[in-house]
Amino acid sequence: MNIKLKLYASLMRYLPDDVADRHTAVLNVPEGMTPAKLIEDRKLPKESCFLVLLNGVYLTPAERETRQIQEGDAVAIWPPIAGG
């Protein structure tokens, strides 16, 4: 199935070369993929995956382990950041 992986800030360097736009890669992943597994597969530094949104909704660290990603979903990840 195809999903979108969106990486921001210092995580951008972990995007594959052929990205859809500045932040987004369309990836083909097996069914049953979880955000935690995705982070592992893509070799993202886990400690830098601070904010993980599935279709814009925040996932707690526990939910990242269990929530199954569906076809067409977008997983967006940020390192620790803030603004104001």
Binding site: A9, A74, I81
Partner: peptide, 23 residues
């Protein structure tokens, strides 16, 4: 702290643009 020690100096407040949009 990862936010004040690294996030803010590197990307400033403007890093929020994509976060808040995604949200």
């Amino acid at each position: 702290n990862a936010v004040t020690g690294e996030g803010l100096p590197t990307y400033g407040t403007q890093v929020l643009m994509n976060v808040i949009n995604e949200l």
